[in-house]
C-alpha cells in the first residue's frame, strides 16, 4: 500500500461503511431484523438520523472524489518529478474502473434524489422509482466490487 494514500483510504473506507449502512437503513429493515436493537446501532432505525448521516457522508464522499480525481490528474501531469507513485503509464485496475463507474452512478442518481427531496420539486413518478432502484443497484455493484478487491487485495491503480 502506498503510504501517502493511507489517510484517504481510511476516510474512504469509513465513509463507505457508514454511507452504506445509512443508505440501507432507508429501507425499514434494521428494526425488523433486530439489527437496530444491537447496542450502539439504535440510530439505524431512526429515519431522520440516517437520512442526515447519509447526506453528510455523501458530501464527504463527493469532496474526497473531487480531490482524488484532480490529484490523480495532476500527478500524471507532473510524472517524472519527485511524485513517483503515479506516472503517465499508471493504469486504473479493471475492478477500480467498475468501482468508479458505480461511484459515478451513485453520485449522479444521488444528486437527482437530493434535488427531488427539496420542497416544491416534482419529478415524474416513474423517474423517482427509476432513481431509487438505480441508486440501490449502483450501491450493490460498488459493495460487490469493494468486497472483491478487499479479499483479493487489489489496489485502485496498477
Amino acid at each position: 500500500m502506498v503510504y501517502h494514500f493511507k489517510s484517504r483510504r481510511i476516510i474512504y473506507g469509513l465513509t463507505l461503511l457508514f454511507i452504506a449502512l445509512s443508505g440501507f437503513a432507508q429501507m425499514p429493515i434494521f428494526k425488523r431484523y433486530y439489527i437496530a436493537d444491537i447496542p450502539g446501532l439504535g440510530w439505524l432505525a431512526q429515519f431522520y438520523v440516517t437520512h442526515a448521516i447519509h447526506y453528510a457522508l455523501a458530501a464527504v464522499l463527493m469532496g474526497l472524489c473531487a480531490y482524488v480525481v484532480l490529484d490523480y490528474y495532476f500527478a500524471r501531469k507532473t510524472s517524472g518529478t519527485k511524485r513517483i507513485q503515479i506516472t503517465k503509464d499508471t493504469r486504473i485496475a479493471a475492478s477500480a474502473q467498475l468501482k468508479i463507474a458505480a461511484l459515478s452512478g451513485l453520485i449522479i442518481t444521488g444528486f437527482f434524489m437530493v434535488v427531488k427531496n427539496l420542497s416544491g420539486i416534482y419529478f415524474p413518478h416513474g423517474v423517482v422509482i427509476g432513481l431509487d432502484l438505480l441508486h440501490l443497484l449502483f450501491a450493490m455493484v460498488l459493495l460487490g466490487a469493494t468486497a472483491y478487491t478487499w479479499v483479493r487485495r487489489r489496489t485502485w491503480i496498477l
Binding site: H51, A52, Y55, A56, A58, A59, M62, F111, V114, V115, N117, L118, S119
Partner: peptide, 8 residues
C-alpha cells in the same frame, strides 16, 4: 436534509 444539500 435541505440544509445538508448545500454542503453537498
Amino acid at each position: 436534509g435541505s440544509n445538508l444539500a448545500i454542503a453537498m
